[in-house]
C-alpha cells in the first residue's frame, strides 16, 4: 500500500491551471524525485503535499485513509515535513533554536526553556546525519550551505517525520556541498524515511533517487524507476523528459 497517494489532483490559481489530474503514489522508504522545468507545477504540488494549500480538485490518502491537511503544522504532526528552499532556517538563530523552532522543550517546575536538552538533542540528530558541528549555539548563518540543510533536516527528524519533502535543496550550493546534501538524503533513506526531492539538477536525481516523476505544463508526463533493466536512467534522457515530455 502506498504511504501517500494522490488522485486527480488539480490546482487552479484564478485563470492559471497549475496542475491537472495528478495521480501519484509515494511508497514508504523510497527517494522520489519530482522534476520539471520552471512553471511545470512542482512548487504547487509541494504546497499541496505539505499542507500549505488545499488542492482545487482531487483527493489524498495517507496510509490508505482519505485525508486533507489543514495546514503545514497539521501535515508536520502527521509525519509530513517540508524543507522549503529559502525558508528552511532562521539564519540568525542558533542550531538548537532552528531544530526546535515552534516545538521548544521546557522543563519543570516553571516551564522555562530547557536549552541544554535542546542543544544535546540537536547534537544527536546531527550525529545521525554524520554532520560534525561542535557548537550548538552557532547561528545557522555561519554554517555552510550543506550544514544548513542538515539543520533543516534535523527539524524534520525532531518531528520524526516519515516523509521529508525537500524543495531544491542543492539549488544554491557548490559541488562539495551538493555532495554533502546528497549524502544526507542517502542517510535518511538508510533510516527508512521517505524523501521527496524536488530538483532541477539531473545529476542529483540520478545519484540518489529510486524513482522519478516528471511534470510538464501541470501534468504528469513520466513516472519511472531510475534503475531500469538496461541500466540506469541517464541524465540526458531525463533532460529530454523534462524538456519535451518524452524521451
Amino acid at each position: 500500500m502506498a504511504l501517500l497517494s494522490l488522485r486527480g489532483i488539480g490546482m487552479r490559481y484564478g485563470a492559471v491551471q497549475a496542475l491537472t489530474g495528478i495521480d501519484l503514489d509515494v511508497t514508504e522508504g523510497e527517494v522520489l524525485a519530482l522534476c520539471g522545468d520552471n512553471g511545470a507545477g512542482k512548487s504547487s504540488l509541494v504546497k499541496i503535499l505539505s499542507g500549505a494549500q488545499a488542492p482545487s480538485e482531487g483527493s489524498m490518502a495517507l496510509d490508505g485513509d482519505a485525508t486533507r491537511f489543514r495546514g503545514p503544522q497539521d501535515a508536520l504532526r502527521r509525519g509530513v515535513a517540508t524543507i522549503y528552499q529559502d525558508l528552511a532556517v532562521a539564519p540568525r538563530l542558533s542550531i538548537w533554536q532552528n531544530v526546535f523552532l515552534g516545538s521548544e522543550l521546557t522543563r519543570p517546575p516553571f516551564g522555562l526553556l530547557d536549552k541544554r536538552r535542546m542543544a544535546e538533542a540537536s547534537r544527536g540528530y546531527l550525529a545521525r546525519l554524520a554532520v560534525d558541528i561542535a557548537e550548538m549555539d552557532t547561528p545557522v548563518e555561519r554554517l555552510s550551505g550543506g550544514q544548513r540543510q542538515a539543520v533543516a533536516i534535523c527539524r524534520a527528524l525532531r518531528w520524526d517525520a516519515r516523509i521529508i519533502i525537500m524543495d531544491e535543496p542543492t539549488a544554491a550550493l557548490g559541488v562539495k556541498e551538493t555532495a554533502q546534501v546528497l549524502d544526507l538524503i542517502r542517510r535518511l533513506h538508510a533510516e527508512g524515511r521517505t524523501v521527496i526531492l524536488v530538483s532541477h539538477a539531473m545529476g542529483d536525481v540520478v545519484a540518489v533517487a529510486q524513482r522519478v516523476v516528471v511534470l510538464k505544463g501541470g501534468r504528469k508526463v513520466a513516472d519511472r524507476p531510475v534503475a531500469t533493466p538496461d541500466g540506469a536512467l541517464r541524465a540526458e534522457e531525463l533532460a529530454q523528459l523534462i524538456i519535451r515530455g518524452a524521451a
Partner: peptide, 24 residues
C-alpha cells in the same frame, strides 16, 4: 530568553515565514 512564548516572539522577528511554517 526563557519562555516558549519568548522564543516564538524572537522567531517571528527573525524569520517570519519560517516561523509560520513551523507552526508559530
Amino acid at each position: 530568553k526563557w519562555t516558549r512564548t519568548g522564543a516564538h516572539l524572537v522567531a517571528t522577528g527573525e524569520a517570519d515565514e519560517a516561523a509560520r511554517l513551523a507552526g508559530i
